[in-house]
Amino acid sequence: MLQRLRQLITPKDAPNERAARGQLGEKKAAQLLKKKGLRILHRNWRAGKDELDIIALDGATFVFVEVRSRNASAKVSGYHSVTAKKKACLLRACRAFLRQQRPRPAHFRFDIVEVRLGNDDELTIHHYENVSLFPDSFI
């Protein structure tokens, strides 16, 4: 899969390789979440400049998912690559989404799905559930 992706991208398209890797990662993450029984509501939901990669339902719980697509050789895991600045953007987007919901959901959580793409189409996916993002006073 990644090998095919590299074949399609020429050197002048190298900046697009990152976007293609991200799209592939989001597709694989959505497939994993569906397999686990979550219902995908939105992909790439935007609130201004902020974006939520996936919004899903796990029973009655809204799940906000950040997908981190990484090369297998990446030094920092997808889980640890979510910086304080990124968390602030995600928090703003979650608040914007929840403000639109009537009635407001009683339960929601934040997950990270890390998709590692290696050579020879090797793919590793880690799903981190209920990652700490929301402060105790979250409204």
Rank of each mutant, 00 (worst) to 15 (best):
Y79H: 11
T10L: 13
A29T: 15
K34T: 09
E66F: 03
N16F: 13
S81F: 02
E26F: 06
A74F: 15
A106S: 08
K75W: 05
R116K: 08
Y79M: 11
I55A: 02
A72G: 05
L52V: 12
A60T: 11
N119Y: 04
E122P: 04
A60D: 06
L33M: 12
G78W: 00
I40T: 12
L38M: 14
G22P: 02
L98W: 14
A93D: 02
K35E: 11
L123R: 15
R109Q: 09
K34V: 14
G59T: 10
D120K: 08
V82Q: 06
A14S: 15
F64C: 00
K86R: 04
R99T: 14
Y79W: 08
L33H: 00
T83A: 07
L38A: 04
P103L: 14
F64V: 01
L123H: 14
L33Y: 02
P105A: 08
A84L: 07
R68K: 04
V67E: 01
H107E: 10
S81P: 04
L117H: 13
V63R: 07
R6M: 11
A84P: 00
A93H: 01
L123Y: 09
F64I: 01
R43G: 07
R70P: 13
E66I: 03
S77D: 15
H80G: 11
P11I: 15
Q100H: 05
A14H: 15
E17N: 15
R21F: 05
E17S: 13
L5N: 07
A56W: 00
L91P: 09
N44Y: 05
R43D: 07
